[in-house]
Amino acid sequence: MRRKQIVFGSILIAVVLAGIVFGAVCLLTNGTQTTPGGLVLDADAHEWEPSQPIVSDEQQGIKIPGYGTIIFPAGEENVALTLYNPKENACVFQFSLYIDDEETPIYTSDAIEPGKAVQEITLNRALQTGEYVLKIQIDPYDPQSGAKHNNAVVTAKLQVI
């Protein structure tokens, strides 16, 4: 009988310790998910399909979305903008947004998986009314190794009204 109590007690202690370790890991990562290459996945990204297919002259390679005129409300940090990684890609995208010739981005995403998009972003600061050149830098990464591929910069007209 005493032996059964010791075995049961040992199992109970092991289960409690496993729970504590699991809880600590969850707290340390704040529930974030990562790729095998260690890239943090954007928690706001969700499955998304564009209304029109991404047109590309290349049959192979990374598909890069284009952007027309973008409109943001003046004085707002939370703005609507769809940042999309086409489902045909085998890499994750990280987006960085730059205004005119500024060197500090006004927004940087976490990694966005193929076929997913974020549609609302929080800028580092609110923008004043006016017209700007918005440079959208797209950095593709291999999700397995975390290695960065060549980047692309897409330019769009930004109207802040």
Rank of each mutant, 00 (worst) to 15 (best):
D101C: 00
S109M: 12
T104G: 02
Y107K: 00
P114F: 05
A43V: 15
G37Q: 11
N78I: 07
A80Q: 15
N124H: 12
P86N: 04
I71F: 12
T122F: 11
T69N: 11
E77G: 07
V92R: 02
I62H: 01
E49F: 09
E76H: 10
P73K: 13
A126P: 11
I121K: 06
E58H: 08
E47H: 07
Y67M: 02
L83Q: 03
Y132N: 08
I106S: 06
G68C: 02
S56T: 14
E102H: 05
P50R: 00
T129P: 02
S51P: 00
Q52E: 15
E49C: 00
W48R: 01
V55S: 05
T82V: 15
K116H: 13
Y84K: 00
Q137R: 15
F72A: 04
I71T: 12
P36W: 08
L81I: 13
S51E: 13
P50D: 00
K135F: 09
G37P: 12
L134R: 04
L97K: 04
I121S: 08
D101L: 07
L127G: 07
N89T: 01
E113G: 04
I99Q: 08
Q52T: 11
G38F: 11
G37F: 13
A90F: 05
L97T: 14
W48C: 00
V79K: 06
I106R: 00
Q94F: 02
P65A: 06
A126E: 13
L39T: 04
N85W: 03
I71M: 11
V133G: 03
A117H: 06
V40L: 09
I106N: 05
A80I: 08
T129W: 06
Q119F: 03
V55Y: 04
G115A: 08
P50I: 00
Y107H: 10
Q137A: 12
D139K: 13
I138K: 06
S51Q: 10
P36Y: 04
P114Q: 01
T104H: 10
W48M: 06
V92Y: 04
Y84H: 11
F95Q: 07
I99V: 15
G68V: 03
T108G: 09
G68K: 03
I121H: 09
T82K: 09
A126R: 07
S109Y: 09
T104S: 14
L83G: 05
D44Y: 11
L41V: 15
L81R: 04
Y107Q: 03
D139L: 13
V40S: 07
V133S: 11
L39A: 02
D42S: 04
L97C: 09
I99N: 04
T35Q: 02
A43W: 06
E58S: 13
F72W: 07
Q59C: 01
P73V: 05
V118I: 15
D44A: 14
S56W: 03
Q137W: 10
T35G: 02
F95D: 10
Q94M: 14
R125F: 08
